[in-house]
Amino acid sequence: MEANTYLITGVSSGFGHEMAKQLLEAGKTVIGTVRKKDKVQDLIAAHPDAFDCRLLDVTDVPAVQAAVDDAWARHGRIDVVVSNAGYGLFGCAEELSDEEIDRIIATNLTGSIQLIKSALPHLRAQGGGRIVQMSTYGGQVAYAANSMYHATKFGIEGFCEAVVQEVAQFNIGMTIVEPGGARTEFRYGSARVADLMPEYESCHGFLSMLDPGKGLAPGDPVRMCERIIESVETEPAPLRMVLGSRALSETLRVTRERLAAFEAMEELAASTDFPEGE
């Protein structure tokens, strides 16, 4: 599909900012949402006509719905909706506050669900389009001290897998993007850490990962965003796209282990059925 107009949440940094930059430089129109405009002054100055910057906190459900409706009213057609706003939260379950739990669910999970739900009637009315949901290979692979981040990403992936089956009949495609570690502010700036407890010190290896002085992530956000943008032209839409060699190897390892465990349950699973004929 030829995509000319994109709606992207969370363009102030990371993948969102890089995607917006590449698209604008390619002559596309970008409706980008931010919580503060100070970090996108470069895009505003360089592309005053093509960059439609909107203030939005995706935890505000009525505001998400109004922003989507207003974007379509102003631009007439939006070809691609990129659900990108989100952040990482590190800490073991017992270390997390109730506020931290509620906030990450509202941002990463509920915010993404409401964005997609709000966009669907517009995409359906215009005869189709594409949704890109930014996830992570942590939507398939879980590590200690990442429980709530995984909860939101496993959750949004399940939501998307169901929705894509509902909307395929309307020519709406959806891709779940699962990047590995990348050199973005997500890891080196915006990640949040709970109030850590000495009892869980053995699970705090992520502190080294968050310190650029201990070595940088292998993922190149420029190349990753190029692949994401290219995927919009692919028909049919790929359901998943894993970015990063380590992300793929870990996903394959866990998937193989999971499959072997399921296959070993064949007799157990069958033992709970009614006998044949009853």
Rank of each mutant, 00 (worst) to 15 (best):
S147T: 12
E161S: 11
E2R: 12
R183H: 14
A260V: 14
E266P: 10
D42G: 06
L252H: 13
P121D: 04
S147L: 13
T29V: 14
H75Q: 12
P275L: 00
A260K: 15
R256E: 15
G139E: 11
R74N: 12
R130A: 00
R103S: 13
E230L: 07
L7R: 02
S83V: 11
S83D: 08
K21V: 08
G215K: 02
H17R: 15
F51T: 03
R223E: 11
E235P: 00
V242A: 05
A71K: 00
L43Y: 03
F90V: 10
P198D: 14
D60Y: 05
G215S: 04
F262S: 13
R187C: 14
G213Y: 05
Q114F: 04
G14P: 05
M209P: 10
A85R: 01
R223I: 13
N146M: 13
M1G: 07
V242E: 02
L207S: 14
Q65E: 03
G76F: 08
S12V: 07
G127H: 08
R240G: 02
E25C: 11
M148F: 11
E157Q: 14
Q65M: 04
V34D: 01
R253W: 15
K117S: 07
L120M: 15
K39W: 01
M148A: 05
V222W: 09
R77A: 15
F170R: 01
G86I: 10
G27K: 09
E263A: 11
A71R: 01
E100P: 03
S208D: 09
M148I: 08
K21M: 08
R187W: 13
E230T: 07
L43S: 03
I78H: 00
R103C: 08
G277N: 13
P218R: 09
L216E: 10
